[in-house]
Design a protein around this nucleic acid. Structure first.
Length: 844
RNA sequence: GCGAGAGUGGCGGAACUGGUAGACGCACUAGACUUAGGAUCUAGCCCGCUUGUCGGAUGGGGGUUCGAGUCCCCCCUCUCGCACCA
């Protein structure tokens, strides 16, 4: 228990106040959480930081939002889990090693130490006992184990394939890590390479991940839309077109089987294996080879321009009509999607339309619109892609296109040349990285046995530290014979270890589960702890992870569920990791995101030193609603600081009588009915209206800026009443003391240090244990409400009435108003309307 | 091109279900206190004028309504995402 300090300092000294409380929280482990099935839980989580060196304003904003939520829910009576850790593997550490000769492990550890001190200095209420760092073998060993389990289940596999290669980062990238054909990290143009790589079968969950988007009302629609688009489900059919003049066929994927009678040629990707075999020996062979070479050399973005293509010199047949169709290699057809080949229906697909026009190919209308003039290929300016009725389609004539899709697919199935199928844009997740600073992939290669998983009892495969960083010649791991050379777990013969490491997004796909039992060393998770704490109730982070981390985590949570890791027998399964998601905006200065390269960064250390952590917190909360970008303003910071100094002065001025006034926040004054003083009643009403607004803003709307504004209004409402001598009226005195205490309680989540310090002078007990105040509904009732009188929609008068005045009386009163009389004089009243408690509307 | 979101004072932003547009803060102006103040306090602060509890005003135009920043239609601008996905 804290005793009330004697006389408070006259001047607010943030440094002294903040370090004092931070030391106390650390010493008492105030924010350590323990599972307690008897209490309702709240798991509040912010995306954990990469230990890059120092925290930036984006971190301050992100973690302040999270801390407000965590602290407020604690006061609300929830058992709150609010952990933090370090996403500690990644390229910058390795680059530092190459450029400056510091070992990644040391660089990372030093950064973590510095940044941890910075976070503590911000006063964030983390449970520091649960801190994890993903580069710790005690962490990543479980990831290696998950991988082995996935391997057994076929959820992980190795395959040679075309992958995205960043020459600058010297590694492979996942599809999600390529933006606009460039590396997400360094923006270099990404090349294609054919490599043997490890993949996780995220596509096995494509349908579930897509469908479950509808079960996430707590996520921003924008993020769900991005995920849905990324998964990209297309329902359609695979049809095989037999080759003319030889054996075999070309399989195409289409979402419009109803238009198959309109196919006049077939387009295939330049990477398609049939391109070479079909053109070989034809007069077109040389032109085809040249075309393929040229297109494959183009970066993906440039391929997309125009409708380039070349005739292969070969034909196939439309399986429905027997028509002979020329086969083209086309730059716009993607080998990676569908079947790598498409049937071309120029009249009903815009790309095929353009291609046909460019290459002077025939066009056939097979779908006619129902409420428009019939189409004529000669006069069409663009493809008709909407629904309609089938024509020139043999037995299917007259069917609506939707019906025809099913009928034609069924016919193809019966004929043995097609089937209904669903394709996804989502590709399996390539997780091999040709870099050192990551978790080793726990497999070995044996000449006799092939790919052999490391035995579970031999985990972890620890990343060796004694390596050379030259920056050339690939991963330093591959050059470390001591690491590479091993024996085959299966036959005991000499074997070689995998030297690629995991994509660091793997570590961040399950850290939120590990926080529930970070020290567990016999198994990955304590399923009871997961059952209690998960899912995360509020997750907060940047929108940039809309399809990266957030999609991977949703996948990983499902994979771990199916591997039996996350729930005890009989307990409900954990499908979705994050119930509510808040994506906060960027911190902007001079119109651009704060970044070192732009030279517009503001260092949080400077802010803390000059104004204190509470001011930094208050500013980042108050300047904009959380989802919007926050424009940096030095003067805005001054304003936040000024408010705290002012609050300090007001409370200190009256502390001697404030502390003597009985009661805790929100209930200090007597019952409303017993209060005679109108001033006291008004202040009590303002106090409870503020409690109501702040609660609503923090819990439901997540509009922390308006919550702070409401508290400022409350302070403005009583500040001049707090003088060294108390108000003479005892009711008003009690109302003021109650308002002051309420202010401190409501501010505690936002500016915990100054709130705790002032509370120590004027409030009973320890603010950390004071519950969130309840709204007294009776205090909200107004004695008088102001009515507005509108004549023809314009405000012409106002007056006050008791809220329960009958409508007729209100109307009479409105009509009696002098200014209303002036407006209606000599006119006929056509309509009157009374909205109780708000306004009277008169139409003349 | 497709999809999503947003346009409100000098600035950041309020206005939640259609009901007094501009809360709160910044900047600015005047005054007070002061040796001084970039501290603090008080007052003013959307635009306009004929200074009236007058007129106009929420990107532009139209509509619904007693009443529209909010709902509907058309247009303009900006931001973000996807970008030949068959």
């Amino acid at each position: 228990m804290s005793s009330r300090a004697a006389r408070p300092e006259a001047r607010y000294d943030p440094q002294a106040v903040e370090t004092r409380w931070q030391e106390r929280w650390a010493a008492q482990r105030t924010h350590a959480a323990a599972a307690d099935p008897a209490r309702p839980k709240f798991y509040c989580l912010e995306m954990f930081p990469y230990p890059s060196g120092r925290i930036h304003m984006g971190h301050v904003r992100n973690y302040t939002i999270g801390d407000v939520v965590a602290r407020q829910r604690r006061m609300r009576g929830y058992n709150v889990l609010h952990p933090i850790g370090w996403d500690a593997f990644g390229l910058p550490a390795e680059n530092a090693a190459i450029e400056r000769g510091i070992h990644p492990a040391i660089w990372t550890r030093e950064n973590i130490e510095y940044m941890r001190a910075q976070l503590r200095r911000m006063g964030f209420s983390y449970d520091w006992d649960r801190e994890v760092a993903t580069c710790d073998p005690r962490y990543y060993r479980w990831e290696q184990e998950f991988f082995l389990a996935m391997l057994e289940r076929g959820l992980a596999y190795r395959r040679k394939s075309l992958v995205n290669w960043c020459a600058r980062c010297q590694t492979v990238l996942a599809n999600e890590q390529v933006e606009d054909g460039r590396c997400w990290r360094c923006e270099s143009i990404v090349e294609e390479r054919e490599l043997e790589q490890w993949f996780l079968r995220i596509t096995a969950y494509a349908d579930e991940l897509l469908a479950a988007c509808d079960t996430l009302p707590g996520w921003p629609e924008k993020v769900l839309t991005m995920q849905r688009n990324w998964i990209g489900k297309s329902v359609g059919a695979e049809l095989t077109f037999p080759l003319a003049d030889r054996e075999g066929g070309i399989t195409v994927f289409t979402t419009r089987p109803d238009t198959v009678f309109g196919a006049t040629f077939v387009s295939i990707a330049v990477e398609h294996p049939l391109v070479g075999t079909l053109s070989a020996g034809t007069p077109h062979e040389a032109a085809v080879t040249e075309f393929v070479r040229r297109v494959r050399a183009l970066p993906q973005a440039e391929r997309a321009e125009g409708k380039d293509g070349v005739f292969l010199g070969a034909y196939c047949r439309n399986p429905f009509t027997g028509a002979r169709l020329p086969i083209y290699a086309a730059s716009f057809v993607l080998m990676a999607y569908g079947a790598g080949a498409v049937m071309a229906v120029p009249c009903h697909d815009q790309r095929d339309f353009e291609f046909a026009r460019t290459h002077d190919l025939p066009m056939r209308v097979v779908v006619q619109p129902e409420h428009a003039p019939p189409l004529d290929p000669a006069s069409m300016a663009e493809a008709y892609v909407d629904a309609g009725r089938l024509v020139a389609s043999g037995p299917f004539d007259g069917l609506a296109s939707e019906e025809a899709k099913g009928a034609i697919t069924a016919a193809a199935e019966q004929g043995g040349f097609g089937r209904a199928t669903t394709k996804y844009r989502l590709r399996d997740w390539g997780v091999s990285r040709q870099r050192y600073w990551g978790a080793p992939i726990p497999v070995v290669y044996c000449d006799a046995c092939g790919v052999v998983p490391v035995r579970r009892e031999d985990l972890p495969v620890v990343l060796p530290t004694d390596v050379e960083f030259s920056g050339i010649g690939g991963s330093p791991l591959a050059k470390l014979e001591r690491f590479v050379r091993t024996t085959c777990p299966s036959c005991g013969a000499p074997a070689r270890r995998e030297t690629d490491t995991f994509d660091t997004f793997l570590e961040s796909s399950w850290y939120f589960l590990r926080y529930t039992a970070p020290g567990e060393d016999r198994r990955a998770f304590d399923t009871d702890a997961i059952g209690y704490w998960l899912p995360v109730d509020q997750y907060i982070g940047g929108i940039e992870h809309a399809v990266l981390h957030l999609l991977y985590s949703r996948f990983f949570t499902r994979a771990l569920r199916d591997l039996g890791y996350t729930s005890a027998a009989g307990a409900p399964p954990l499908d979705e990791p994050f119930t509510n998601l808040l994506t906060q905006g960027m911190v902007i200065k001079d119109g651009a995101k704060m970044s070192k390269s732009k030279g517009n960064v503001v260092d949080p250390d400077y802010l803390v030193q000059r104004y204190g952590a509470d001011t930094a917190r208050l500013f980042s909360i108050f300047a904009a609603p959380p989802e919007r970008d926050l424009e940096w303003s030095d003067q805005g910071v001054e304003g936040a600081s000024r408010f705290l100094h002012r609050l300090w002065r007001v409370v200190v001025r009256g502390y001697e009588w404030l502390r003597e006034s009985p009661g805790a926040a929100g209930n200090g004054a007597a019952q409303m009915e017993s209060i005679e003083s109108t001033d006291a009643k008004a202040l009590r009403r303002l106090t409870h209206r503020t409690i109501s607004r702040v609660t609503e803003d923090v819990e439901r709307r997540l509009h922390f800026n308006t919550a702070v504004a409401a508290v400022m209004e409350l302070v403005n409402g009583y500040a001049e009443l707090v003088q060294e001598t108390p108000p003479a009226d005892p009711a008003l005195r009690a109302a003021v003391a109650d308002a002051v205490r309420t202010t401190l309680v409501l501010l505690a989540p936002f500016v915990p240090h100054v709130a705790n310090e002032l509370w120590e002078h004027v409030g009973p007990g320890d603010l950390e244990t004071v519950p969130w105040p309840a709204v007294d509904e009776s205090a909200l009732v107004e004695d008088q409400v102001e009515m507005v009188v509108q004549v023809n929609g314009k405000v012409r008068a106002r007056f006050s009435v008791a809220p329960d005045t009958p409508e007729d009386d209100v109307l009479a009163r409105a009509l009696a108003e002098e200014r209303v009389q002036a407006q209606i004089a000599g006119k006929t009243i056509r309509k009157t309307l009374v909205v109780p408690g708000r306004l009277v509307s008169i139409v003349v």
